[in-house]
C-alpha cells in the first residue's frame, strides 16, 4: 500500500460503509474538501449536510441527528472541533449522543498554515470527558478499520486524523480493537509508545537505535482512550523505560495519559516527546525536526534518556 493521509482513508471508508448503512450521515462546516467527506457528499447528497462555517451548530445538529437514530460523522479540523469543547461536553458527551467526531489536520505536521489551524490540544480537551473514546489510527489500513469500528460503537467517539500521508505500518491482517495496541517492533531496552503522525518515525528510530545496540520496542497506540493497560504495563515491566511520541501538545495528550496510568500502576521512568509551546508555520519536515519528532530526534532523545 502506498502512503496515504488518514483523512483520505476516512473519506474512502465513509463512502464505502455509507453504501451499506443508511444511518450514516455527514455534517461539515465548510471544510468538506479538507476532511474528505466530499465524495460521500457527492454520492449521497441527501445525507450530507454542510452547515457553513459554524462548528458548534454542526456539532449540535449531529447530536440531534444521533438522537433521531442516525450515525452522524461531524467533521472539521481537530482544533475547530475541540475549540467548541463546551458544546461537545454537553450536547454530545453528557447527552451521550451517538456522534462520531472527526478531527483532521492533527498536529504541527500540517506545516505552513501555522498554529491557528493545528490540532494540538484536542486530545487533552476531549480526554477529560468521561465517555468519549479517542482513536488515532496509524495508516490507511487501520483507519478504515477504525471507521468501521466507530459505526459499530454505540456512543460518542473521537477520530483524530492527519492531513499528511502516512506510511503503512500495520500488517494487512491486523485488526483494530479499541483499547488494544499493536506491537510493531519487539525490544527489551526501551518502549516507544507512538501514535499518529510520528508513528513511522518511531519505527525508523528503532532501526537507528538497533544499529547502536539499543533494542527498542515500538507500540502503536492508536487507542488513546482507553489505553491498552495490559500491553503498556507488560512492556514497561520488561524494558523499564517509556518514551511517548506524539504530534500533540506535550501537556495532556498520550504522554499525559500514559504517565497518569503508570504512575499509579507501575511507576516507570518516562520521557514525553511532543510539541512544546505553540506551533508555527514551516515545512512539516523541519517542524518535526525542531520538536524532535523525526527519526533522528526520537533516537537521540532515547539515547539521552537511557544515558547511552
Amino acid at each position: 500500500m502506498p502512503a496515504k493521509a488518514t483523512r483520505a482513508a476516512f473519506g474512502e471508508a465513509l463512502l464505502e460503509l455509507g453504501a451499506r448503512d443508511d444511518r450514516i450521515v455527514s455534517v461539515d462546516a465548510d471544510l468538506s474538501k479538507s476532511t474528505m467527506t466530499v465524495s460521500f457528499a457527492k454520492k449521497y447528497p441527501e445525507r450530507a449536510f454542510n452547515v457553513g462555517i459554524a462548528e458548534q451548530n454542526a456539532i449540535g445538529i449531529a447530536a440531534g441527528l444521533a438522537l433521531a437514530g442516525k450515525v452522524p460523522f461531524v467533521c472539521s479540523f481537530a482544533c475547530f472541533l475541540a475549540g467548541r469543547f463546551e458544546t461537545i461536553r454537553i450536547s454530545v458527551a453528557y447527552t451521550n449522543a451517538n456522534v462520531k467526531l472527526v478531527g483532521t489536520h492533527a498536529g504541527i505536521a500540517i506545516g505552513e498554515d501555522g498554529y491557528s489551524q493545528m490540532g494540538l490540544e484536542d486530545i487533552a480537551c476531549l480526554r477529560a470527558l468521561p465517555n468519549i473514546p479517542i482513536v488515532q489510527p496509524a495508516d490507511e489500513h487501520e483507519t478504515k478499520q477504525a471507521v468501521a469500528y466507530a459505526i459499530e460503537h454505540d456512543g460518542p467517539l473521537y477520530l483524530r486524523l492527519t492531513r499528511q500521508n502516512m506510511e503503512p505500518v500495520c500488517p494487512p491482517d491486523s485488526r483494530f480493537r479499541l483499547g488494544r495496541w499493536l506491537t510493531l517492533n519487539a525490544g527489551v531496552d526501551v518502549t516507544l509508545v507512538g501514535s499518529g503522525g510520528p508513528i513511522a518515525n518511531c519505527v525508523a528510530a528503532a532501526k537507528m537505535l538497533a544499529a547502536d545496540g539499543i533494542s527498542a520496542e515500538v507500540v502503536n497506540a492508536s487507542s488513546i482512550k482507553p489505553l491498552d493497560e495490559e500491553t503498556l504495563v507488560a512492556s514497561a515491566g520488561r524494558t523499564g523505560h517509556i518514551v511517548t511520541v506524539e504530534d500533540h501538545s506535550i501537556a495532556g495528550g498520550l504522554g499525559g495519559a500514559v504517565a497518569e496510568l503508570l504512575s499509579e500502576v507501575l511507576p516507570t521512568p518516562h520521557k514525553r516527546l511532543g510539541v512544546q509551546g505553540f506551533g508555527e508555520s514551516g515545512d512539516p519536515k523541519s517542524l518535526y525536526a525542531k520538536h524532535g519528532l523525526d527519526p533522528a530526534g526520537i533516537a537521540s532523545s532515547v539515547r539521552k534518556f537511557l544515558n547511552r
Binding site: 498554515d113 491557528s116 508555520s281
Partner: peptide, 28 residues
C-alpha cells in the same frame, strides 16, 4: 512567508509581528 522562523506566519500572529493587532485565523 510561511517559512520556519519567519515573523510572517501563515495566519496573523500578534506576538510575531508588530503591527498585527490580534491572532486571527480561527474565523469568527
Amino acid at each position: 512567508l510561511r517559512k520556519l522562523g519567519s515573523s510572517l506566519q501563515g495566519h496573523p500572529d500578534r506576538t510575531a509581528l508588530p503591527g498585527i493587532e490580534a491572532a486571527t485565523g480561527s474565523l469568527g
